[in-house]
Design a protein around this nucleic acid. Structure first.
Lengths: 225, 225
DNA sequence: CTACATATATAGTGATTCCTATGCAATACG
DNA sequence: CGTATTGCATAGGAATCACTATATATGTAG
């Protein structure tokens, strides 16, 4: 039952990071006090300062954890759908179509971080690096995808990835303000246009495949061994 | 030299609203204290509470002023460009291509408000209403535009307006993180694809027309008469 | 000229926040 | 088994914030 000190330390760190990500996404970074994070993690503010030194330190650590866990999945798991349009639908489904899921909270956290990056160069640097890497990955996926289907996208893979990400981001934001104005069909039409596919006929959407590989945002302390 | 009480009151209100919009956009709503707004307006916090009752009241008043002053210009003034691609370039130019301008700060404020709307239903309602109206306007412009040029957009005007706005929003966000990854050419290609135009050749962009009708965000107190 | 009304300034209060200094109990180690 | 170390808790300080209560000065009306 007793843990080594290293184990307890790692568990505390993981709990704090999970609680931080959760609360930051939920209430907004500024509205979350250090004590709130600590309490949500079942610890006290002392633990936060022992681990991260400051609230900004906690934020950067959360950012780091976020960095290497999201959106890797964006295109990686899409190939499981059969039809090309079904694949596009699956993409949208993972980004913006499922409220109250983990990916929903991740995207809220992403917005929170984006806004922070607007004023905090330290955060902006991390986001920029992540953006480059993520775009590279998407670009590779997209160019493979475009060559297997014979379509002619509107730009080279790197730029195309930027356009796709931008459209998805914008649609997801619009969905939060006015949910009815954005649906899967619309997202698919937009994506298809960017990808240079022929115009989409009516009601072409098959039932979606939920890609369930998004890492959990809530507590996932390292399994005790 | 002496003003009537009504004049001074109106001037103070305008000063406070301008200072509020400015500071909210610049530093973020939560990071701005009531005293900071008052001081920037050359008044004290007492004036803020006399006029708006609370910080939230000030925010809603700023929101109201913002509501009826932005993005009306989005498509309204675009027709002045000659070539179709030049028109698209002008659209992007007004949204996301000019840092450190008034429209730049307005868009920062818009993001600030969007984020707020995520948690504050009062703000969300206003943004939703504005979104509906703005989309309607854009849809009308777009359908006229699409019929004069003979192109076949990827969706009906209302949905098309949503796609266009989403793409522009997403690109503008990306530009703030990684300015080099977004340029006018890219925006034009994306827009052209959504509008169903034939693929854009290389380097088709002519010098942009700066549409200078965005209302100023900084102080514009009612002219004394 | 006087009495009132109003717009804004001033001063202060309680609540909240981030962070520091220190204490303590459990583990690590010789 | 005793000492050192470590991980975290506890308590509190200084700053900031939204907001209130009251004062003041200036315009307004009779």
């Amino acid at each position: 039952m007793t843990q080594t000190q290293g184990e307890r330390k790692a568990e505390t760190r993981a709990l704090l990071l999970a609680a931080g990500a959760d609360l930051f996404a939920d209430r907004g970074i500024d509205a979350v006090s250090v004590d709130a994070v600590a309490e949500a993690a079942g610890r006290t503010s002392g633990a936060v300062y022992a681990h991260f030194g400051s609230k900004q330190g906690l934020l950067l650590a959360v950012l780091d954890a976020w960095k290497q866990s999201v959106l890797t999945v964006l295109f990686a798991e899409v190939a499981m759908s059969d039809s090309p349009l079904g694949q596009l639908a699956a993409v949208w489904d993972n980004i913006g179509n499922n409220p109250d899921t983990d990916s929903d909270r991740w995207s809220l956290l992403e917005h929170e971080l984006w806004q922070r990056a607007t004023r905090d160069p330290e955060v902006a640097d991390v986001l920029r690096a992540r953006s480059v890497e993520s775009r590279g990955r998407s670009a590779r996926e997209l160019s493979r995808w475009a060559s297997t289907m014979s379509v002619q996208p509107v730009a080279d893979p790197d730029d195309l990835a930027t356009l796709v990400k931008a459209l998805l981001t914008g649609l997801e934001m619009q969905r939060r303000i006015e949910p009815d104005s954005v649906n899967c069909d619309l997202a698919v039409r937009g994506l298809a246009a960017l990808l240079g596919m022929p115009p989409v006929p009516e009601i072409p959407i098959q039932p979606h495949h939920r890609v369930n590989a998004t890492p959990s945002l809530t507590t996932h302390p390292p399994r005790e061994r």
